[in-house]
Computed example of a mutant assay.
Amino acid sequence: MKRLVFTAAVLTVSALPALAQDFDLNALIEAAKAEPPITVYDSTGKIVDMAEAFSAKYGIQATGEKVSATAQLEMLIREHQSGNVLGDVALLTDTPAAIAQLLPTGVVESWVPPDLEADIPESYRNPLAISTNANVWAYNTEAHTECPIKNIWQLTEPEWKGRVAIIDPLTKGTYTDWFNQMATRGEEPLRAAYEAHFGKPLETDQPSAAAAWLAAMGANGPLVADGDDRVSEAVGAPGQAEPFVGLLSSAKFRDNADKGYKLGLCAGMEPWVGWSYTKLGLIATGTDSPSAAKLFIHYVLTEEGILPQMRDGKMPTSTKIALPADEPSGLAAHLDALFPYDAATGLDDWDTRQDWQDFWRVFYQR
């Protein structure tokens, strides 16, 4: 109970937006023009183009720097402690770490533009998420006319032993967050999927259906890769007699055009075609350019601002923005079939990361 109260306080105190009718975008722009240039951290190289477009639009100098989520955390904390803020805005994909380490210590703050707040679902406002990133189950369209996996529990069966590719959960916190979110909120769908596939209710000694699935899938010897590129190759490379099925970022579907791969989305897979995690838009509390930082946050919540990342399959949280028609994965037609991230349990996701990593170590078999 104590931890839950603490979490709520962290997420509420960070942002106290003004009323939409009191917000003046033109005044914010003018104030931003009087401030020093800003630097924006993001884990994708697209941030360079986004910052350049922002600078051209407003005449305000912004520099985009590609920095991994892990490095962002360390840099933001050190810059705050030293009083030398170099990164004014952080677009961060590690929501639990932000909730546990950055927001409660005042390293960053979350600000929702009042004129755009109504377009952002409440679950994405506190802290502000600018987009969601999807990891989806994929198959090889050259080897199969449709996805051979219809149910997540198929991945635990002998037929798919050693033929499933995923990113190593020990190297990416979003994966252990997914495990914990499934254990917290996915019990009924996972049990229903088990019964639909095996024709009987799930009976397990594990504490949750998510733990039961993860233990069985790990014991089935999946290929564990160090990144999406390896998973994309294992699944989508042409000329394979028995290609892998795999879990990878929807952004990797661009490999079909860039590399001649044959990736296809496992549409209709039960209970979910994949899962998503959020990218937060945060402002360093010690920035010398608070108005410019807010203006950049406002910019990335518009279609113009977020478009470079949308082309890679990143999904804006704004309900006013639709994915582009040429987005390569076709995920736009299956958004309701994604298991979404919920920041309400973010602190618990953070606290249980080591537990889920230890769990994986116990059950994973090469």
Results as ranks from 00 to 15, higher is better:
K294I: 11
K294H: 10
K294R: 15
L295A: 04
L295W: 00
L295M: 04
F296G: 06
F296Q: 06
F296L: 07
I297L: 15
I297Y: 14
H298R: 04
H298M: 04
H298V: 03
H298D: 13
V300M: 05
L301F: 05
L301I: 00
L301T: 01
T302L: 04
T302F: 06
T302H: 08
T302Q: 10
T302I: 03
T302P: 02
E303V: 04
E303G: 00
E303T: 00
E303Y: 10
E304N: 09
E304Q: 14
E304G: 11
E304C: 02
G305L: 04
I306K: 09
L307V: 03
L307K: 07
L307Y: 14
P308K: 02
P308T: 00
P308V: 00
P308S: 02
Q309L: 07
Q309R: 10
M310L: 09
M310A: 13
M310R: 10
R311D: 14
R311A: 14
R311P: 05
R311L: 15
D312V: 02
D312A: 11
D312W: 10
G313F: 08
G313V: 05
K314E: 09
K314T: 10
K314Q: 12
M315I: 15
M315D: 03
M315G: 05
M315A: 03
P316L: 01
P316C: 03
P316E: 07
T317N: 12
T317S: 12
S318W: 00
S318L: 03
S318F: 00
S318T: 09
T319V: 08
T319I: 07
K320P: 01
I321M: 07
I321W: 09
I321G: 07
I321K: 02
A322Q: 14
A322K: 07
A322Y: 01
A322R: 12
A322E: 15
A322F: 03
L323P: 00
L323F: 07
L323E: 02
L323Y: 05
P324S: 14
P324N: 13
A325K: 13
A325M: 12
A325R: 14
A325N: 07
A325D: 11
D326L: 03
D326Y: 00
E327S: 06
E327R: 10
E327H: 02
P328H: 02
P328Y: 05
P328I: 01
S329M: 11
S329D: 02
S329V: 01
S329Y: 06
G330A: 01
G330Y: 00
L331N: 12
L331P: 08
L331Y: 11
L331A: 08
A332K: 13
A332N: 14
A332R: 09
A332T: 01
A333I: 09
A333E: 15
